[in-house]
């Protein structure tokens, strides 16, 4: 599979906006694509993984860099 890596900046947005932005972006991507979402609201550490579990996507990693939280999502099959 030929995966592409995409970026999404959701800094300074409060939940659930980062989840909505992730959801809308994932809709445009293909199965296997990776999306790296950068956020500052700590709530995303629960909300984005929960959203992924419900909708069949995979969390590849959650990294923290100061106030920034970087979550990499791999798009699953619908």
């Amino acid at each position: 599979m030929n995966e592409n890596l995409y970026q999404l900046d959701a800094c300074n947005l409060l939940c659930p906006m980062p989840v909505i932005e992730t959801q809308n972006r994932v809709k445009e991507l293909n199965v296997g694509d990776m999306l790296k979402v950068t956020c500052t609201d700590p709530g995303v550490k629960n909300d984005i993984p929960a959203w992924c579990r419900i909708n069949g996507h995979e969390i590849i990693s959650i990294e923290e860099d100061g106030r920034k939280i970087i979550i990499t999502v791999q798009v699953g099959a619908d």
Partner: peptide, 12 residues
């Protein structure tokens, strides 16, 4: 309080 989005939690 646990930081969770209740709508997502209910759906799950």
């Amino acid at each position: 309080k646990e930081k969770r989005n209740n709508a997502l939690w209910v759906a799950e």
